[in-house]
């Protein structure tokens, strides 16, 4: 019995270590943002629809908002577009767009064709703002609270499930699920 105690113990330890490894590997490719729980980057960028208007992060303070990084060159963004429109329809939280390294005329015509889910779109022509947010591949979507703190980050094309399971429950009650239900009823 004692002869097997140590090898068995080592084996059990190995199983635990590997199990932890496997459990975490499902998130492989999704990198946890160090921005979570930290203040969102400050920005002041020209608006897509009116380049003389500057979109400022300070103007957003006091409201929850969704910060969605996209571009017309990005296939996943096209894929999530209908979900964004649905989120806009729910009218629960404003969506701020960041048009990442894109051509303004193409971005505008895409929004015209497919519909515009954004309250306002900030333009990041040279990609510097995306670096501030730690963006490494569009689409990426952040949820920022009324204190200007990043609450959640979603990587990849948004889905209806992600909206219901990840975003709505994180929103304050009067903005979140309750209002979404009201919107669904009416």
């Amino acid at each position: 019995m004692n002869r097997f105690a140590i090898p068995l113990g080592v084996f059990a330890l190995l199983v635990v270590v590997l199990a932890i490894g496997i459990k975490h590997s499902s998130n492989l490719g999704v990198i946890v943002s160090p921005l979570l729980g930290k203040p969102a980057p400050e920005f002041a960028l020209p608006s897509l629809t009116d380049s003389t208007h500057i979109v400022k992060s300070s103007d957003l303070r006091g409201r929850w908002y969704i910060f969605n990084v996209w571009g017309t060159w990005c296939g996943g963004c096209r894929q999530e577009h209908s979900v964004l429109l649905e989120m806009r329809q729910a009218d629960v939280v404003p969506i701020i767009g960041l048009d990442w390294k894109d051509k303004a005329d193409e971005a505008l015509s895409l929004l015209q064709q497919l519909g515009n889910p954004y309250e306002i779109v900030a333009v990041d022509k040279d990609g510097r703002e995306a670096i501030e947010w730690g963006v490494y591949g569009a689409p990426e979507t952040f949820l920022v609270n009324d204190q200007g703190v990043v609450v959640y980050k979603y990587i990849g094309p948004l889905t209806h499930e992600a909206w219901e399971k990840e975003f709505l429950p994180r929103l304050p009650p009067k903005q979140g699920a309750a209002r979404a239900q009201e919107a669904a009823k009416s």
Binding site: I31, V32, L35, E132, W133, G134
Partner: peptide, 8 residues
């Protein structure tokens, strides 16, 4: 870089 993208 680490502050934005993490230790990775």
């Amino acid at each position: 870089m680490v502050a934005r993208y993490g230790e990775f």
